[in-house]
Nucleic acid binder design. Structure first.
Lengths: 122, 122
DNA sequence: TTGATATATGAGCATATAATCATATAGTTG
DNA sequence: CAACTATATGATTATATGCTCATATATCAA
């Protein structure tokens, strides 16, 4: 069976019955993972392909410890994949829906900002 | 000019330069707003049209104070719209991208869960 | 083995935010 | 006006989470 169909029917198709707390927690968690600027920075840095931790530290300007922590969070959430090669560890985007998510959110933000800016037009 | 194009180009098209902290904060904030189970419950309850606060309190099983707080958060983020009619206040989904966001996240979660479950298949 | 490098993690502190209680505000009715 | 209803909000507490420092682990090279 398809858990997507299950969750999505629960989200969109049925009468608003109390949604399973577990399903809600899963969805909320997915959003929470994307709700940190440093994690967005890391995702952004990986848009053009896998990189090792040191490269990500340089690109994001964060400390090694902090970058490593956020990478674990993204890894555990299934957003990133991990590949070890000798001393180095390479991370890459594992969930392609991330790209569309960013598109959607950016598009929605644009509309909102343009509309808010329009308050001052005449 | 289009801030969407601006943000999205920054997210996807250019070399991973340090992204504007302001842009990152905006995107992160948008995700954070969707990262609470009770807010997801409220959004879910509004999928089939606007409802007043009392109805939302009943549907979600939350307290009046807590529901009201979360509604303010969603309102301020531009996710919901507010319409006052006499004593009652009606909330509705203002940002249609919410529907697609939920679809995307649910779809991505499904793939992940199915894949994890598959670990035990042979 | 020793030393060097890359990455991960335990512990502590600081901050953000969710839930709750009590109360405030606004609109309606008598 | 007073009483009532619907919604919002100040203040407090509890919890979660981000950041930092120091240190641990793993791999490689000499």
């Amino acid at each position: 069976m398809s858990s997507r169909r299950f969750i999505c029917r629960a989200m969109t198709k049925t009468k608003p019955r109390p949604l399973s707390a577990a399903a809600l927690a899963l969805v909320a968690r997915r959003f929470a993972v994307l709700a940190e600027p440093m994690r967005l920075r890391l995702i952004h840095a990986l848009f053009d392909g896998e990189k090792n931790v040191n490269a990500l530290v340089r690109l994001t300007g964060g400390t090694q410890a902090n970058v490593s922590r956020h990478l674990q969070t993204l890894l555990q959430a299934g957003v990133l994949a991990r590949r070890k090669e000798g001393l180095q560890v390479f991370y890459a985007i594992a969930d392609p829906s991330i790209f569309q998510l960013c598109e959607l959110v950016c598009g929605s933000l644009e509309k909102q900002l343009v509309q808010e800016a329009g308050v001052f037009d005449r």
